[in-house]
Simulated assay, not measured.
Amino acid sequence: MNKLQMMSLYRDFRKDLQLIEKQLERSVRSSSPVIQDASMHLLKAGGKRIRPIFVILSAQFGTYEEENVARVAVALELIHMASLVHDDVIDDSDMRRGLKTVKARYDNRVAMYTGDFMFARALETMSAISNQQMHETLAQTMLDICKGEIIQMHDQRRVDQNLRDYLRRIKRKTALLLSTSCELGARVSGTSEENIRRLTRFGYFAGMAFQIVDDILDIVSTDAKLGKPAGSDLLNGHLTLPTLYLLQDEKFVGYMNAAFDETLTEEERKNMLQYIRQSGAIEYAQQMSDRYLQKAMDEIEPLEEGRAKDAFYQIAHFIGQRKY
């Protein structure tokens, strides 16, 4: 599945996404001009809106109620946006998607308040839905995301990490929110518990694959396509699956230490990226991503045939093949 096919999939659900986008804009309005401007800046930076799409598609397996589906989708996208703002503070990142981050445009304090504001708006958005189990799931998800931010800070520039540390981190960073998007989208539609379980697991497995591919792209893509320097994860002190593969490699460790010490030159950065690309690390990470994607597709195989199931298959293929 290429980018053109992905855009075609989004067109199929254009009306739903337009409603969600309008509600997102309403949600970030604030009596504070600074908070509103910062929130709108992040919203207008765009994004793939994967979480809203997962909510929409999961809700297709039950009784689809447009307003409630939109509320769930908006809440989850706001939580995602809040986590991005906080991540940029943790990483001291100046660029995201080719634009200045909130912390770079303002400062760390405004960025943290903006993220907290979006968390609060997410809870407010969900308050119109009376399902207690959905609120409990959302609350637990937010707690786990916050734990993940703390773990990410703890793991930053820590060289004694292993695969379990990495998988735990990306679960909370990405997979959990995609899993919750599927679960709440399915639950708000009143579909069966079996469908809810399968869709929840699909979201988790797809989310794990999505983040691994993101980490691969950080190494193999270009600065222009990423909207930030390639290798930013390592420059920010984060070991990802491709770089974990090389932790016993002396030459790579030299590059890593320089990146962590912020002494890596531009030429060394390019050489480091080339070294990682030729090491077998990318193939290793891709194989693990493919295994997660296969598990994701196995979960939806028994679901009812229809455009939602087809769309999930297409998204899974897109995740595995995406180049941007």
Rank of each mutant, 00 (worst) to 15 (best):
L42M: 15
K44S: 15
A59R: 06
V55R: 04
L78A: 01
E77M: 00
P52H: 01
R71D: 03
I50G: 05
S30C: 14
L42H: 15
L57A: 08
N68E: 14
A59S: 15
E77S: 05
H41R: 05
V69A: 11
V55K: 04
A70C: 03
V34Q: 10
A59T: 07
S32Q: 08
Y64Q: 07
R71Y: 05
S30K: 10
V69C: 10
M40D: 00
I56R: 10
V74M: 05
F61P: 09
A70G: 00
L76K: 12
Q60E: 12
V55Q: 03
G47W: 13
S31H: 14
I56L: 10
I35Y: 03
Q36F: 07
I50H: 01
F61D: 04
A73S: 08
S58Y: 11
T63I: 14
S27E: 00
F54T: 10
R51H: 01
M81V: 01
S27R: 00
Q60I: 10
F61N: 05
F61Q: 04
E77G: 09
N68G: 14
L78D: 02
L57P: 10
G47C: 06
F54C: 13
I53A: 15
R51W: 02
N68S: 13
Y64M: 09
V28K: 03
K48T: 05
I35M: 05
M40F: 03
K48A: 02
S32C: 11
V72A: 01
I35L: 14
R71G: 00
S58H: 08
I53G: 12
Q60W: 11
K48S: 02
S39A: 15
S58W: 11
A73W: 02
L76A: 14
V28T: 03
K44C: 11
A45T: 13
V74Q: 02
A75Q: 02
I56K: 09
Y64F: 15
R51E: 03
I56N: 07
G62D: 11
M40P: 00
R71W: 01
F61S: 06
E66Y: 06
M81P: 04
S32K: 09
V28W: 05
N68I: 07
V72K: 07
R29E: 10
L57W: 04
S32A: 02
L78S: 02
L78C: 05
D37A: 15
H80W: 07
S31C: 09
G47P: 06
A59Q: 07
E65G: 15
H80G: 11
M40S: 01
S58T: 10
V28M: 05
S32Y: 05
E67A: 11
S32D: 11
H41L: 06
R51G: 09
A75I: 03
R29A: 06
